[in-house]
Write a protein that binds this DNA or RNA. Structure first.
Lengths: 170, 170
DNA sequence: TAAACTAAGTCAACATGACTGACATAAATA
DNA sequence: TATTTATGTCAGTCATGTTGACTTAGTTTA
């Protein structure tokens, strides 16, 4: 709330923040990891990379491969293997771009939607409990700080991606 | 601050939290990744795994291998390669446990300390700026929520590790 | 229209950091 | 003394990232 204040952050708080972020993220991703490990696919198993693709395609139906690459910040060769598996196993469908026929627009299938729900469910439960306990004010403040932890030059892209600004004072 | 409130978190806030945590962590680890990529070691390059080991040994001088394993939650075989490199290149020293001679107590060398500083510096700068902008109240609240994002059964271990409770209302 | 650029896909080789399973050694403990 | 514990090691595998080179098809531009 205050932009300038007389109490600068202590080295201890900063160090704790670094470590807490590590542990929080570790547990946060361990949830879907379990779901992924349980899923037995015909052509090889699925990992975090597949989860990320399913998540972002689910959130942005009809996105292009190039858009997905810029979000994930990996090479197209890395994405290719993951995407191929997801298409072959019926989680994701491709469609020719109506404007630009070179583009391949990505969509989740019904199977993909169901898997997305199963994957994100434990994460949603985790945050729901957290926010219920913390209350709306602390929750919104938490989102704001997470947002400001992101590189300044990437915030616009993230903002348009997650669709903030209206409901959430980001 | 409020434990029970009439405004439950919206699905949108929860989804945003999931995505923001992903992006924030991505940028947060990209900083030391650059430092690691720049470092040219004689016997192979260093990665995130080395960073984590250096960080926790730096924070807990004299810790045992078993303690390190329980923090990192990886297998000893995974740790072995990383630890061997760090010892061979003079970042970490081992010492026989004075009580239990089977134990190998881990310490950073002067070289290890210097590297730890270089690695964590961009992360500290990132959080310092964030906390300066957000103010002490939002900063402490942020730490609390990060802490409560951690699995309940691991919070005690984390707390004793990061040394909260006195200064920080965790 | 021909040339250049762009979106996407593919092949190959490689690095990192995880994993499992089996086994070895030395020290502590029952 | 026998067993358990702390650590280390060998060998093989897998998931996920990388670079570099190249193809195909469609769009844009000179």
């Amino acid at each position: 709330m205050t932009d300038i204040n007389n109490k600068p952050p202590t080295d201890d708080e900063i160090r704790q923040a670094i470590e807490l972020l590590f542990f929080a993220y570790r547990d946060f991703v361990a949830d879907p990891d379990k779901v992924l490990a349980d899923y037995e696919s015909p052509k090889g198993s699925l990992g975090r990379a597949h989860h990320r693709v399913i998540h972002f395609v689910g959130r942005n139906p009809g996105m292009t491969v190039a858009e997905l690459l810029s979000i994930l910040q990996i090479t197209k060769q890395s994405l290719a293997r993951v995407l191929r598996q997801l298409i072959d196993e019926g989680f994701i469908e491709q469609e020719r771009g109506p404007e630009d026929a070179r583009q391949r627009l990505l969509y989740l299938t019904a199977k993909g939607e169901a898997f997305e729900t199963a994957l994100s469910n434990p994460q949603r439960v985790r945050f729901r409990r957290l926010f219920e306990k913390a209350g709306p004010e602390a929750s919104r403040s938490f989102l704001t700080l997470l947002f400001e932890l992101i590189n300044e030059d990437e915030r616009d892209q993230v903002l348009s991606l997650i669709g903030g600004k209206q409901q959430t004072s980001l």
